[in-house]
Amino acid sequence: MNQGEPIIRIENLHKNYDDKEVLKGIDLEIYPGEVIGYIGPNGAGKSTTVKILTGLISDFEGRITVNGVELKENVLAVKSIIGYVPENAELYDVLTPLEYLDFVGKLYGMEASHIAERATRLLTAFGLGDSLNKRMDTFSKGMKQKVLLTAGIIHNPKILVLDEPLSGLDANAVIVVKELISLLAKEGKTIFYCSHMMDIVEKVSDRILLINKGAIVANGTFEQLKTQHGDSLEHIFAKLTGHSETSGSASNIMSALE
């Protein structure tokens, strides 16, 4: 898989918030068609990495090249080939899914007729065919998440950044999204997948990156990480982030109830 030039190259990436160093020199190469599982504890720097990569944060140190384009030199060109499904996104609830996706598609320069046709097909495939023209303020969290997923792929991006994309989805929808990730990767799309759901990360990822305290502390396939650190992804995560004591937390909570 790792043939040719990487589609994403991150070199010596640093980011500070006032006196706090959030990213401490990230170096990373990601290749076309790879599914990258990006994991780490809260506050480790996952969201900051994602926001920099998607052009939402511009004041960083280091160099990022996406599809041969330097991010700092042409952020719009980079944004045009990335689809982003954020963990916590606000939809325009007064709009219908078709109205919202028309707005999103036009931001990417798509023709209105093309947007309508593709949005209808995508939403129907996600099981929202009966809700195309309903206002989204009546939607469940899962229905809204399906609209966000549709917005992330409607322009057929080369790179898809997913931040907890399964939030609120039912079991059937989770299966669909997992299959979709696999099919997109087979078409050469690059998937950058952030999640706390270790079992899903383990199953969908070609390579797993573990970030802790602003630095990458593990980078490899699940089998490679098991060989190096042993056991399940949860235990690898706990070991490398210094939270091995977590295993006793549940029993401690139960003891407190006695």
Rank of each mutant, 00 (worst) to 15 (best):
N2W: 08
Q3C: 12
E5Y: 01
E5T: 11
P6V: 14
I8G: 02
I10L: 03
N12P: 10
H14S: 04
K15N: 06
K15I: 03
N16T: 14
Y17V: 12
K20S: 13
V22Y: 07
K24S: 03
G25H: 07
D27I: 02
V35S: 04
I36R: 02
I39N: 00
G40T: 09
G40L: 09
S47M: 02
T48I: 13
T49H: 09
K51C: 02
I57E: 03
I57V: 14
D59S: 12
D59K: 15
F60W: 08
T65G: 02
N67G: 04
V69N: 08
K72S: 14
E73C: 13
E73M: 11
A77Y: 04
A77I: 06
I81R: 09
G83Y: 06
Y84W: 01
N88C: 07
E90K: 11
V94A: 04
L98A: 01
E99V: 03
G105V: 00
A112K: 14
A119G: 01
R121E: 11
L122H: 07
A125Q: 13
D130A: 15
N133A: 12
T138Q: 12
G142T: 04
K144R: 15
K146P: 11
K146S: 04
K146W: 09
L148K: 06
G152E: 01
I154T: 05
P157E: 09
P157Q: 14
I159D: 00
D163S: 01
E164Y: 08
P165S: 08
P165T: 09
S167Q: 10
G168F: 10
L169F: 05
L169N: 02
A171C: 07
N172H: 15
S182D: 14
A185L: 12
K186I: 10
E187K: 08
C194H: 06
S195L: 11
S195D: 04
D199K: 14
V201L: 03
E202I: 03
E202C: 01
E202A: 11
R207W: 02
I208V: 13
L209Y: 00
L210S: 00
N212K: 08
G214S: 05
G214F: 07
A215W: 04
A215T: 10
V217E: 00
N219L: 09
F222P: 00
Q224R: 13
K226L: 07
T227A: 06
T227P: 01
Q228G: 02
D231R: 06
L233W: 06
E234H: 12
F237W: 01
F237P: 01
L240C: 03
E245S: 10
E245D: 15
T246V: 12
G248M: 10
S249T: 15
N252F: 15
I253K: 13
M254K: 13
L257W: 11
E258L: 13
E258D: 14
